Amino acid sequence: MRTAPDLSTVTWRKSSYSNNEGGVCVEVADHIPGLVPVRDAKNPHGPALLIPDEAWGAFIGSLKGERPAAR
């Protein structure tokens, strides 16, 4: 089993779709090997989801309308 990385020193960046009017507020952090941490910007001390980078790439690709690579 993999231990959770220490996220106390990562730099979080807010989604470009977030706004300051109570809209969707999602933040992600970079530079965690193999993972993309995701959290609710309105609750920065709350939990973060740790998404495998392959799954994150597929998710973002699907939002952009890209087809998954053939295996």
Score class of each variant (00 low, 15 high):
Ala69Cys: 11
Arg13Lys: 07
Trp56Phe: 14
Ser15Asn: 08
Ser15His: 11
Gly65Met: 08
Ala48Thr: 01
Ala70Trp: 10
Glu54Ile: 00
Arg2Leu: 14
Gly34Lys: 10
Thr9Cys: 03
Asn20Tyr: 03
Lys64Cys: 13
Gly34Ala: 08
Gly65Phe: 09
Pro68Asn: 07
Ile32His: 04
Ala55Lys: 05
Val26Gly: 09
Lys14Ser: 15
Pro68Ile: 07
Thr11Glu: 11
Arg13Thr: 15
Val36Gln: 02
Leu49His: 07
Ile51Asn: 00
Pro68Tyr: 07
Lys42Asn: 14
Leu35Trp: 14
Asp40Gly: 02
Gly34Glu: 12
Asp53Val: 08
Lys64Glu: 14
Asn20Lys: 04
Ala41Gly: 14
Ser16Trp: 00
Ala69Asn: 07
Ile32Asp: 00
Pro5Leu: 04
Ser62His: 13
Pro5Gly: 09
Glu27Cys: 08
Val38Phe: 04
Ile32Gly: 05
Pro37His: 09
Ile60Gly: 08
Pro5Ser: 10
Tyr17Ala: 12
Ala4Ser: 14
Arg13Trp: 01
Trp56Ser: 10
Ser18Leu: 02
Ala69Arg: 13
Pro52Val: 00
Arg13Phe: 02
Asp6Trp: 03
Asp40Asn: 12
Pro37Met: 11
Val10Leu: 10
Tyr17Lys: 03
Arg67Gly: 07
Arg2Ser: 13
Val26Asn: 03
Leu50Met: 10
Leu35Ala: 10
Ala41Ile: 01
Glu66Gly: 02
Ser16Pro: 01
Arg71Val: 08
Glu27Trp: 08
Gly23Asn: 14
Trp12Asp: 03
Glu27Leu: 05
Ala4Trp: 03
Asp6Ser: 00
His31Leu: 06
Arg39Thr: 13
Thr3Gln: 09
Ile60Trp: 06
Ala48Tyr: 01
Pro52Glu: 12
Glu66Tyr: 12
Trp12Gln: 03
Pro47Cys: 11
Trp12Ala: 09
Ser18Asp: 03
Pro33Ser: 07
Asn19Gly: 14
Asn20Pro: 00
Val10Glu: 10
Val24Asn: 14
Asn19Ala: 02
Leu49Phe: 14
Ala29Arg: 02
Leu50Tyr: 09
Asn19Trp: 05
Ala55Phe: 00
Arg39Met: 14
Met1His: 09
Pro5Trp: 08
Ala69Lys: 12
Asn19Ile: 02
Asp53Gln: 09
Arg13Met: 09
Arg2Gly: 05
Val36Pro: 01
Glu21Ile: 01
Asp53Gly: 00
